[in-house]
Design a protein around this nucleic acid. Sequence first.
DNA 1: TTGTACGCGTTATCAC
DNA 2: GTGATAACGCGTACAA
Lengths: 336, 336
Amino acid sequence: MATIHDVAKIAGVSTATVSRVINLPHKVRPETRERVERAMKVCRYQYNALARGFVTKRTNTIGLIMPTISNPVFAESTRGIQDVAGQSDFHVILGNSYYDGDKEAKLIEVLRERQVDGLIITSTNMKGDILRRLLRDDFPFVLLYSTVRKGPMSAVGVDNFLGGYMATEHLAGLGHTRIAMLAGSFNISDRSFHRWHGYKKCLKDYGIPYDPSLLKQTGFGLGSVKECIQALLSKDRPPTAVFCSNDLVALGAMEGAREKGFRVPEDLSVVGFDGMPLSSYVYPRLTTVYQPAYDMGRRAADILLAQTREKPDKPVHDMLDVQLVVRDSTAPLVSP
Amino acid sequence: MATIHDVAKIAGVSTATVSRVINLPHKVRPETRERVERAMKVCRYQYNALARGFVTKRTNTIGLIMPTISNPVFAESTRGIQDVAGQSDFHVILGNSYYDGDKEAKLIEVLRERQVDGLIITSTNMKGDILRRLLRDDFPFVLLYSTVRKGPMSAVGVDNFLGGYMATEHLAGLGHTRIAMLAGSFNISDRSFHRWHGYKKCLKDYGIPYDPSLLKQTGFGLGSVKECIQALLSKDRPPTAVFCSNDLVALGAMEGAREKGFRVPEDLSVVGFDGMPLSSYVYPRLTTVYQPAYDMGRRAADILLAQTREKPDKPVHDMLDVQLVVRDSTAPLVSP
DNA sequence: TTGTACGCGTTATCAC
DNA sequence: GTGATAACGCGTACAA
């Protein structure tokens, strides 16, 4: 592969001039510039961004750590991140933690070894020590889908408590009192945990006694979700509504309910969380708590890029609004 | 940031020894090794993979270019690629072309500048010159979701013609004769084009005259899909079945049909393509032509990694099997 | 405006 | 088993 040395030799100039043609073209006399450009063509010169990163100490790369790209909501935020990064000639290296804290820690380590300029992390469970180490090193990073709204690290997220509250309130407002919740496992996601708290608080505010047997923490995969909802629907007095901690779970719940002969929303109202793009293209169209995933990705990238340019004096906490989107998967309670 | 020089100084050894401790620990006397390891802790040494890539000329990075991560099917293959790459300590840099040939070309260029060891490309439209240039430079790359099954470049894909044929045959076998097709724009994806050919061939084999007015090329977004299907259903003699060139389009079509008061599958049978994970969690459960996206990603990564290790004498063409998955969105034609 | 010379952090090739 | 040192390709003072 040709280097600037080859180009310099062919063009009869120094390597410094070639470098200038690449980075500061206006600082080179037009004739010289042309000569250099011709030489680059002759030897099929290709710029080596790695070498630049090596000397400038910036790779224009950000690492992205999230549970799995297979959840459409994470795909959306990833796209937002990429769009913003691309605008600034940054690229994104992907890492899936699969909800595994150790994998997450390992990813942080290897991505740092690769000299990424910053990290966007959708943490599975706040491994305090790992993140504190990033802070200590002044390493730029932003938490995404974060539940924290203060403290020393920058974060982008939504109010999951409020979202859980809104979902539950919608159901309570429709007259439901036996409202179940299908939550992701609490030890892998505090988002789910916060939504559950919102759910509980709403029940309390509406004078509905909290029934622990109506909470199920689902395992991985939609098969597990089906089992959970079917167990719930097999109870003596089955729930008439269910709040699912994300849209994927909601789809699994609806399918599981149908399999057992329950109609949605007539026999069971279902609320999701996320508002993933597909949620309005399923039947019945899903009532859900929308969080602006794409914009959250963009915001996280904005904040991170700013942070890579100069150390900010304060961390940024950006909590975007959730929004209840009422569609067709929920209906008023009808007494039999 | 500490370097191996710092470590060497502290441990009282040469940089070469430090490097050996990192890469060939068994070639260092245990006591020396320990001393070095202690020194690394003392100065909080962190390995610089960039510097290694600089000298070894390998970055252990592959670039992935695809239309958009927001299509769950691409997310699945991406996950397959990442899983395989991770096994070999490779990382993946993402690039979305958004079905734009120029963006695609630009991405190839910048990723090469970044010294990725290879490229996996889901091409929007065979830009012959761009790919030929990769070949000429002996640059490792694999086409994914490719329609080519021979020629000088390695490729992984499925038989889209066959898939289109199978989908149509299923509908014809159910007695349908007015079978529409909702295809992605042909100039942005030859996959859609091949599926259309399979569709046409099947119609011919079943003695069903081809009606060009039953083909619609959809624009971007599911809104456009709804318009297309609704136009189709507004015809004097509307189709009784529709083959959609992917599952996302199928969801849009089902929703559009429902809006117009058509029931699926009673009034309209719908077949998708892809078999994305969610396709069995929608209602009605989608009949679709499954392509093993995750495995295709894995295969592409396998082939590429092998290629980065040593130049193969022959390109690999891997055509995986598609599979018709009959579910609930299709039903026999009932005459009114 | 252009050229010289050094440094970035690591690996690899020799010696010892 | 260990050390000295020359690459690798580029950016950048500083000098001319």
